[in-house]
Write a protein that binds this DNA or RNA. Sequence first.
DNA 1: CTGAAAGCGCTTACAG
DNA 2: CTGAAAGCGCTTACAG
Lengths: 336, 336
Amino acid sequence: MKTLRPTSFDVAERAGVSQSTVSRALRGSPGVNAETRARVSAAARELGYVVDRHASSLRLKSSETIALVTICRPGEDRSAINPFYFALLGSIAAATSARGFNLLVSFQENADNFRADFVASGLADAMIVIGTTSNRAAWKYFADAQASGLDFVCWGSPGSPFHWMRSENDIGGQLAAEHFVATGRRRIAFVGPAQSPQRQFDERRDGFTAALGLHGLTPVVAEPPAAADRHAQGVAAVQALLAAHPETNAIFAASDMLALGVLQGLKDAGRRVPDDVALIGFDGIRAGTLADPALTTLEPDLDAAGEALVAMALEDDEHTRSGTRIPVHLVVRGTA
Amino acid sequence: MKTLRPTSFDVAERAGVSQSTVSRALRGSPGVNAETRARVSAAARELGYVVDRHASSLRLKSSETIALVTICRPGEDRSAINPFYFALLGSIAAATSARGFNLLVSFQENADNFRADFVASGLADAMIVIGTTSNRAAWKYFADAQASGLDFVCWGSPGSPFHWMRSENDIGGQLAAEHFVATGRRRIAFVGPAQSPQRQFDERRDGFTAALGLHGLTPVVAEPPAAADRHAQGVAAVQALLAAHPETNAIFAASDMLALGVLQGLKDAGRRVPDDVALIGFDGIRAGTLADPALTTLEPDLDAAGEALVAMALEDDEHTRSGTRIPVHLVVRGTA
DNA sequence: CTGAAAGCGCTTACAG
DNA sequence: CTGAAAGCGCTTACAG
């Protein structure tokens, strides 16, 4: 069905001007006669002419597109990807489109499809990497890519040399702690991976622990066992936690998927939420609002995150490329 | 930070061959001496050379990329997008990457960002359109685009002249009906929009109604009132349904998000699920597995859907471009 | 304000 | 098997 596309020469002929004038008129270059410009626009419209982006990008050495890589768990199917990353993808898409840029997306999970050369091939002007930190091979690949000069910015902090962006995790942990204390909880636990390459989890725990410390409280830290995904980890973690610390009456989970698993595990164990045990998650994913009771959570400002990631990716100034933090706020719903 | 990228001429110089030989060697063209090819590959690797995709695409008149447009509700933020579309996006990405193609994504919601010229500009070889049918303005825009020669394939059937792909909705409706009958339900309702541009809803209802008819049963059809999203519609629909037909003991909802709203509404009304009322949804979204009880649903084979959409988009043969159906199967979980 | 021409970095038909 | 050259469709410095 591919019909022959018209070129700027066709438009030029129809408008009775030179090809260079067509280009200038259509790009909005200054110094083109208004009448000429109108004639060219009309001709272009009549022919259904659209500028060839490859020719244009080749000439301009800029593609006005951002490449977004999402790291997945090997073997995981697409509908099992943590919805937080889909939401982040959506907000990155919004920020990208607000600048008139295109967004190239790539889901990567193993050596078969690891790829970091989007900028090197000219396909994109900058690259953003998000997704699970549990895929060590993937992050190793991107660390090597970075070392060999392929630059990018990423969400979280799966490796030290990266340009990263994170949530205000310490503040989030602190807000969770204060909410528990204010609502009279004293036997408190934190559920989340320790030593995760995802430094964000540590930050949430540390902020939580520090704030609790101010009240003379120390949380039990329950590290989830390995499992298929965060939800399954949450279920398993809470079983172990309740066995060792049956008196627990408040749990802060390092992420919403983990929290949803914890909620499931709590119900399985016959604990009422929030009556017996209060629960707070982190991420603000949609599924949390669908849970019963709805999940209380720390919600990062995703619009800000998308905008900041795109801005950071496009910016060449090293100074702005590290340490940016995205604000979070506590959304009180049913579980705490 | 953009360092000067090496070109094929640089590689040629380093390998001591002509630029044409570099191109042939790197593309894997036949008739290149093995030793020469190795020398060129080594030189390319040493220089960190990557083929410029714009130059290549310009020359080849093919970009090996698919454009995927997702229609959103105006004003909806990205984390509120129906997860079914994110899952579909993921499976399209998988099918795309399996062919070595790139995926360009674009979320569109209003006249500010409507765009259908991805193929016309050479950016993509084909376009796929998915997303909510509730955005009439968007589908009007794409209908016009189609009429003016901008071709694409889409999920569902928001308009008649489109190349579309759908689930086996009638079979899904039939499976739901048979499950209810087999488990002894007789006072049955269907919750879903009638006259929706989303013909798939009608097909599900019709398959359901027809199969029930074989058992001498007729479902009550409850049309959800307008609301912010499908979930809110489900909540509202079930309230009205129970008021008019309190005896209802089984509900088939046209989509999972609707079903999750129905589940919420049922709980709010004090009905036990599945004891008092059984519930079946459609889509197989992840959030359904997280519900309490977990949602029984009709799940389309998304891998097949992604693969078929990409194949259909790339295929020029008109015959294969309409009427393809994706198989669905009943996943029995807690609600029915 | 407009045109003729160079050149972005490839791929491949044409010679050899 | 390899090289010199044309050309994909633009943008823009250079002339006028």
